[in-house]
Amino acid sequence: HHGSGALAALHADGPHAGLPVTRSDARVLIFNDWEERKRSEPWLRLDMSDKAIFRRYPHLR
């Protein structure tokens, strides 16, 4: 199991509170979210491209 239990660094406060600090933090969040959702949506594709990251977390651009 590759990303399970990996912890992402999140901004503690300010405008980005609760959001990932780096792209690799964002990838951890996206992976964990996908892993949760694919139980009920097995067709869901995992997209951890930069484009997917920016779409979801525009502050990382």
Rank of each mutant, 00 (worst) to 15 (best):
Y57T: 01
L60S: 00
G5E: 09
K51M: 09
T22R: 07
R55N: 12
R61A: 10
H11D: 02
S24P: 04
A6H: 12
G14A: 04
Y57Q: 13
D33S: 06
R56F: 05
A9K: 14
A6K: 14
H1T: 10
N32H: 12
I30D: 00
M48E: 02
M48H: 09
D47G: 02
L44Q: 08
H11P: 03
L46S: 00
A17E: 10
W43Y: 08
R56G: 01
L60W: 00
P20R: 01
D13E: 09
F31M: 07
G18Q: 07
L44Y: 10
D25K: 15
L29Y: 02
R61F: 10
S40V: 10
H2V: 11
R27A: 07
R55C: 09
L19R: 15
D33T: 05
L10K: 05
F31N: 02
A52R: 02
D47H: 03
L19D: 08
K38L: 07
P58W: 02
E36K: 11
P15N: 08
H2Y: 11
D47I: 03
H2Q: 11
R27T: 03
H2G: 14
H1E: 11
T22C: 07
I30W: 01
A9F: 14
W43L: 09
P20W: 01
F54W: 07
L29I: 08
R55S: 11
R23K: 15
G5L: 13
D50M: 07
L10F: 05
H11S: 03
H1V: 12
W34H: 04
R39T: 10
A17R: 13
D47V: 03
S49Y: 01
D47F: 03
D47R: 02
G5N: 10
E36Q: 11
S24A: 14
H59R: 01
H16Y: 15
G5K: 12
S49D: 03
R56P: 00
I53M: 04
A17F: 09
A9C: 15
R37Y: 15
R61I: 11
L19F: 04
S4G: 10
D50R: 06
Y57D: 00
S40K: 11
T22Y: 03
R27E: 07
L46A: 02
R45D: 06
E41Q: 08
L46W: 01
V28D: 02
R55H: 10
L60H: 00
T22V: 09
R56S: 06
R61H: 07
V28K: 11
H2C: 15
A52H: 06
D33A: 09
N32I: 12
R56Q: 08
I53S: 00
G18K: 05
V28R: 11
F31Y: 14
E41C: 14
R45N: 07
L7R: 12
W34E: 01
A6V: 10
A52L: 05
R56V: 09
I53V: 13
A12M: 11
A9W: 09
L44N: 04
K38R: 14
P42H: 08
G14E: 03
D25M: 04
P42S: 05
R23N: 09
W34A: 00
N32F: 09
V21M: 14
L19P: 02
A9R: 14
G18T: 03
T22M: 03
D50V: 09
F54H: 07
M48G: 01
G3Y: 14
D47T: 02
